[in-house]
Design a binder for these strands. Sequence first.
DNA 1: CGACCGCCTGAGCCTCCGCTGAACACCGTG
DNA 2: CACGGTGTTCAGCGGAGGCTCAGGCGGTCG
Lengths: 225, 225
Amino acid sequence: MRVLVVEDEELLAEGLRKGLEAEGFATDVAATGTDGLWMAREHPYDAIVLDIMLPGMNGYRVCATLREEGIWTPILMLTAKDGEFDEAEALDTGADDYVTKPFSSVALVARLRALIRRGAAERPAVLSAGDLRFDPGERRAYRGDAEVRLTAREMALLEFLLRRKGAVVSKIEILDHVWDAHFEGDPNIVEVYIRHLRNKLDRPFGRETIQTVRGDGYRLEAGDG
Amino acid sequence: MRVLVVEDEELLAEGLRKGLEAEGFATDVAATGTDGLWMAREHPYDAIVLDIMLPGMNGYRVCATLREEGIWTPILMLTAKDGEFDEAEALDTGADDYVTKPFSSVALVARLRALIRRGAAERPAVLSAGDLRFDPGERRAYRGDAEVRLTAREMALLEFLLRRKGAVVSKIEILDHVWDAHFEGDPNIVEVYIRHLRNKLDRPFGRETIQTVRGDGYRLEAGDG
DNA sequence: CGACCGCCTGAGCCTCCGCTGAACACCGTG
DNA sequence: CACGGTGTTCAGCGGAGGCTCAGGCGGTCG
């Protein structure tokens, strides 16, 4: 799950990033409204945390602009408590929810989760492709009846592939979603983790559900529904 | 189980917190009606203890507002004895029960428990996972036929894990529900208490029902129904 | 046919996470 | 005032897991 935080106060922004990453979100930070707008257009975030008071372009306008452009990523507004905030205005411009400063990062994460869940109500509770299943709540993967033990990263990758099953996903896409936008390490990491998944989910069962599409990326065989 | 106390008299509020926490409730306190309203919206409390006489916004209005917003957390009203209280009005605005000052903390806790149980009629009276059982009313835990003695905190944690059995719960979630929203101590406390539970409920019986999911949190093995 | 490029592989390093034991603070009780 | 029970903090440790790297293999293109 990937989240964009648009916040100019450096300390708060850094705190949010820490908190969100601790909760398993890949987090990007933008310091101005214009930057935020640009990044939101550029990447398919799962949710956006948007401060109202921002240099360059305030949160209301960022929000309204995105909606006008047909971008419906769930938006959580950050507002100061001192009343100069108009709830109606926020919701009018297309925000999905708001949190009043000061807030606990716990509260924020809870609301964010709710938002993402709601914003993606049609997503199935358990992901599957043929006899391969993954339950995001339980954090467990199964091939047929056998449980397969995966690490956090492996699960993140599997979840991503399952959500795009049947389609070819490029290594860059994978890096962007399973790692985060600012990952500057060896891209080979993707190959390494694909290998881990194959070793755990395919090889022991004589399968080849994770296919390499040379020059393009990888594809997880859909199996069926 | 998490409870919100809305009470402006500092001494009484503190007494209530102590009493409730001794009984294993995670307790938050709000000193004004508006704060209370805000917090009730913010967090999914299991019950709210609400004084009527409050600065800012009285209890009736807080209660009515919450109900209008579709928040049906069980509410226990605190009323003065001197008659300016109208029972009908309290129940009309959507309170579930009321207690007249002065009251014993025992009575309050009893009514609160009843309220929580009733307010969640679909919840089973006794929580279980395999041969592990916990009776929230009696405040007792059993492994098979053997009773296991737990402290208040341990029970609170066990209860939370049982209500989410099968699913992975993050440390942050645990902190938020078993401790209270403003807990700012060492998060390591969660590991410590997980360890206590394991030492009492798993190790002596050669079990491993509390599993750690590295990077994500903990999971209580569902066992079955 | 040879060179290159993309992907695979196995091994190894290192960080951070969770575990642990102990100590400390607090409180009610005898 | 000593004592036991409970809740919390702390620092050290061990290892799982995240990541890097260098070499190998095979398809592809000049």
